[in-house]
Design a binder for these strands. Structure first.
Lengths: 338, 338
DNA sequence: TTGAAAGCGCTAACAC
DNA sequence: GTGTTAGCGCTTTCAA
C-alpha cells in the first residue's frame, strides 16, 4: 500500500517536512546537496505526493470540471479532446461528466464539481436559463461556456457566429440560382442548432428576396435517421426543393442517403450542405460540403481562456468568436462563391 | 466566496460538527428535529461540503481514473459513455485522460491519478507491457482493463473474444463460396485490431482449406482513408478478392467508398464486412455488415467490475468476455449463415 | 537555506 | 443521539 508520507521522507533524509515539500514543489530555495538527499529518500521510499492533502492545504486542486452533453457524440468528443489537450499542457486534470443537456443534471453536476473543489469549469450545454446564470454567479471559480451561447454575452464563452455562418452558407447556395432551398434544423428551443442557424437561413432568404416556405423547413433531432426521414418528407412535396441545408453533418448525411435510397442523386437532384465539418463529412459519397466549425479549437481556446481566468490574468475579450468558413466538396455542384 | 465550513454550520445550528457530518452523510443516528435544524442551517449559510477535506479524512475520493487512447474516437467515446453512466450510477466521478496509446504517457497518467487518490482506474490501451504490469501491481487501488488484452489473463478485464469474432465473420464469408477473401487489418503489434483479428482470419482460412495469400492482406491505420487506399491497392491485383474483411468499421467504410470511387459496386463486386458496429455502420450506403462489439456495454461492465473490486466484493470471473455476433446489412450479398 | 508549527475542512473512533 | 478529539498529509507563514 501507499502509506509513505512527506514525514517519512523527511525523517529518511534527515530534514524537515518543509524542506521535502520545497523539493517536491521545485522551490529553488534548497541547497543542491540537500535536494539530492531528499530526492534519494523519495526514490528509496517510493514516495508519491498526496494531491488531496495538497489540495486541502493549498486550496488548489489543479483539476477542472468539464460538463458535456454527450461524450459519445462525434461533435462533442472532438471538443473534449481540444479541452483535454490544453488542460494537460497546463498541468490540469479533468473531471468529465455527461449532462444530456438536462437542466437539473447540469446544475447538479456544477455543484458536485464545486464540492470537489475544481479550480474552474468548462461548460457545454444548450440553453442557459436564469437558473444556470444564478448557479454560475454563485461559483467561487471561473466557468467558461464552450460552443454554448449566453444571450447576454456577459459570461466567458467561445463560439463561432452561428447565425452568420448559416447565413453565409445559405447565401452561397442562393447565389447559384437555387430558388427553393430547404432547411433541416433543430427545434427553435435549441439556441444554436435551432434558433441561430434557422435565423441565418431566414435572413439569407429574405436578403435574396425569397419568401420563407414553411413546407421547406423540417425539424430533426440531429441523427442520421432524421436526415433520411426529412428527405423522404421533402420528396413528397409537389414543389420540391433543389438544395437542402442541414444544421449538422450527421443529418446532412441522412439527407444524402435518403435521396440515394429513392434513386435521386446528389448533387444532381439536390445540392446538400451540412454544418460542423465533423469527420463524417469525408466519410460519405459524395463527400459533404459543409460549414467548418473548428470544434477542436473551440475546446482548446475554451480551456486556454479558463486557465487565464483561473490565474486572474487580464482577459481582453470575454466572449470569443472564432472564424468559420465553408468547405466545398462533392455534395454541391458548385465549389466556390467568390 | 465559499468559506462556510462544517464548523460554521455546527455553530449556527447549535450542535457539534460531528452531528453536522452525520446529517450531511445521511447517518440515521440523528434525531429528526436535530436533523431539521442542521438542514436549515446548511440552507441558510449555503454550506457546500468540501470533498477534498472529506477525501483526506476518509481516504476515499469517490473518483475513478479513466485512461483512454483518444476520446475523439467514435469507438472509445462510446466506451467512455458506458463507463461514465455506471460511474454516475454508483456516485463516482471520473478523471478522464487521453494517452494516445503512448506507453510513457500511460504510465505517467496512472501515477498522476494515483497521486490524486482515485479509488480505482479503468484502463484502455494497446499493448500491456511488463512495465505496465509492474505499474499495475504497485497500485494501491484496483485497475480494470477495458477493451484491452492482458496476455496472461490475470488482470481484471472486459473484452469480447476478438479472435473468435474475426473467425466467425471470415468463416461466414467463406461459407458463401468466396475463395478470395482479403483482410484489412491493423499491424500485428496491435494486440486486438492486428494480432487477434488477423489470427481469426488466418484460422478461418485454414479451416476452410484455403491458403493465405499475402497479397490479400493489407495493413491500415484505422482511418477511412486507409480503407480507400487499401481498396485501391486491391483493385490493382491481377487476381482480385471478392470479399474484404476490415478490422474496424471506419476502414470498412473506406473500402466501400474506395470501390465506389472506381465504379465498383458493393456488394455486387465485393462483399464487405466491418468490425465494431459503431454508429458509422448505418451511416453509409450500402449499410455495413459488421461484427457487433458492444462498446457501451464493455465500458459499463468494466466500471461495474471496478465498483465491485473497490468494495472488495467477491468477483467470480476476473476476465470478463462479453458475447459478440454479426449484424448483416447491405454490404454483403448474403444475410445469414445458419 | 532550513525548521517549527499552525492550520486546511472533514471523518471516525470513542465517550457520554 | 450527540459531543470531543485526534488525526488525514500537505502548504505556508514566520523565525532562525
Amino acid at each position: 500500500m501507499n502509506n509513505v508520507t512527506i514525514y517519512d521522507v523527511a525523517r529518511e533524509a534527515g530534514v524537515s517536512m518543509a524542506t521535502v515539500s520545497r523539493v517536491v514543489n521545485g522551490n529553488p530555495n534548497v541547497k543542491p546537496t540537500t535536494r539530492k538527499r531528499v530526492m534519494e529518500a523519495i526514490e528509496r521510499l517510493g514516495y508519491r505526493p498526496n494531491a488531496v492533502a495538497r489540495g486541502l492545504a493549498s486550496k488548489r486542486t489543479t483539476t477542472v470540471g468539464v460538463i458535456i452533453p454527450d461524450i459519445s457524440s462525434i461533435f462533442f468528443s472532438e471538443l473534449a479532446r481540444g479541452i483535454e489537450d490544453i488542460a494537460t499542457m497546463y498541468k490540469y486534470n479533468i473531471i468529465l461528466s455527461n449532462s444530456d443537456q438536462n437542466k437539473e443534471k447540469e446544475i447538479h453536476l456544477i455543484n458536485t464539481m464545486l464540492e470537489k473543489q475544481v479550480d474552474g469549469i468548462v461548460f457545454m450545454g444548450g440553453e442557459i436559463t436564469n437558473e444556470h446564470e444564478e448557479t454560475f454567479k454563485q461559483s467561487p471559480v471561473p466557468i467558461v461556456l464552450s460552443a454554448t451561447l449566453d444571450e447576454k454575452r456577459e459570461l466567458p464563452s467561445v463560439n463561432i457566429d452561428y447565425k452568420q455562418a448559416s447565413y453565409d452558407a445559405v447565401s452561397a447556395i442562393l447565389r447559384q440560382g437555387h430558388k427553393r432551398v430547404a432547411m433541416l434544423t433543430g427545434t427553435l428551443e435549441d439556441p444554436i442548432n435551432g434558433y441561430q442557424k434557422f435565423s441565418g437561413y431566414k435572413e439569407a432568404l429574405h436578403d435574396a428576396g425569397i419568401d420563407l416556405d414553411d413546407s421547406l423547413v423540417v425539424i430533426g433531432d440531429y441523427t442520421h435517421d432524421a436526415g433520411v426521414d426529412a428527405m423522404e418528407q421533402l420528396l413528397k412535396l409537389d414543389d420540391q426543393p433543389t438544395a437542402v441545408f442541414a444544421s449538422t453533418d450527421e443529418m446532412a448525411l441522412g439527407l444524402i442517403h435518403g435521396a440515394q435510397d429513392h434513386g435521386k442523386s446528389v448533387p444532381g437532384d439536390f445540392d446538400i450542405v451540412g454544418f460542423d465539418n465533423t469527420r463524417l463529412a469525408t466519410m460519405v459519397r459524395p463527400t459533404l460540403s459543409t460549414v467548418v466549425q473548428p470544434m477542436y479549437d473551440i475546446g482548446a481556446v475554451s480551456m486556454r481562456l479558463l486557465t487565464k481566468l483561473m490565474n486572474k490574468e487580464e482577459v481582453t475579450e470575454n466572449a470569443v468568436v472564432l472564424p468559420h468558413r465553408i468547405e466545398y466538396r462533392q455534395s454541391t455542384s458548385f465549389s466556390e462563391d467568390e
